[in-house]
């Protein structure tokens, strides 16, 4: 069953057609990669999915509900979490506080006024936060100032912040951009583990073919704002249309 259904999305920026008639469906419990050369419209598509951009036409349905026109926090509360290209964490707060905040968001919703209670007495929140930090093996860094973490650890922390909300769909925007090979492999392992352990549907936007082919079960190739092909990884390799998009027109 498709958990995310994108139909006929168009988005223009002035004279530029960033997205033209994009159709896409992400199956539940799958890892779906969206690839394409620079300027193909990958990030625009992602921004539409998380409510940052409103398309000119088309529809985005998540689990039978329209996502369009909703604010980022509403989309998150529906069960879509996002991991950013550069890890977005609460830099001024400790690692532990960083994971507590999504726990509160999950339990109390988008807004709850509790100005009298004591954070340290919220047993269930503390337990959840501790468990997730243990899962991503960061428990030893719980008291660290999160801004001083390494890039790889920031990514791990961001992932933990998303996972603790038990999202139904995890959107990843180039999760390994700017990482060294070793960090990239660690991230791939982490994502694999998450997928296997938690059955979370993932949509990955990625540049790095190594990452894509190690993770994805289905791949959509985007070029100039339109999807070219949607196939399994085996069939994507050597697909003439894909070669064309990446390497330019075939010479006769």
């Amino acid at each position: 069953m498709a958990i995310l259904q994108v139909k006929g999305i168009n988005k223009r920026f002035g004279g530029l057609q960033a997205l033209g008639d994009v159709n896409l469906s992400v199956e539940e419990n799958s890892v779906h990669a969206i690839i394409g050369p620079n300027g193909a419209g990958k990030s625009t598509l992602l921004n539409v999915l998380v409510g940052k951009l409103i398309p000119d036409s088309g529809s985005v349905m998540f689990d039978g509900q329209s996502v369009l026109g909703r604010k980022p926090h509403e989309i998150n509360q529906l069960g879509i979490s996002r991991v950013f290209q550069t890890p977005e964490i609460f830099g001024d707060l400790t690692v532990f506080e960083n994971v507590m905040i999504p726990c509160f968001a999950k339990r109390d919703g988008a807004f709850k006024m509790n100005g009298i209670g004591d954070v340290k007495k919220e047993k269930d929140i503390l337990e959840q936060a501790e468990a997730i930090l243990d899962d991503v093996s960061m428990l030893d860094k719980r008291h660290m100032h999160s801004a001083s973490l390494s890039r790889g650890d920031k990514r791990r922390l961001e992932m933990a912040m998303c996972l603790v909300q038990e999202p139904r769909l995890l959107l990843l925007d180039e999760p390994t951009a700017g990482m060294a090979r070793a960090d990239t492999n660690n991230t791939i392992d982490l994502l694999k583990e998450i997928h296997e352990k938690r059955d979370i549907t993932m949509a990955i936007i990625e540049h790095d073919m190594h990452v894509v082919f190690s993770l994805a079960e289905r791949i959509t190739v985007l070029a100039q704002g339109t999807p070219l092909v949607e196939e399994t990884p085996e069939n994507i390799k050597g697909h003439p249309k894909v070669r064309e998009a990446y390497l330019g027109e075939a010479q006769v």
């Binding site: 926090h73 998150n76 905040i101 968001a105 999950k106 988008a110 807004f111 912040m161």
Partner: peptide, 8 residues
């Protein structure tokens, strides 16, 4: 990040 964490 607040919005993307489900908080308004």
């Amino acid at each position: 990040r607040m919005g993307y964490t489900g908080l308004n």
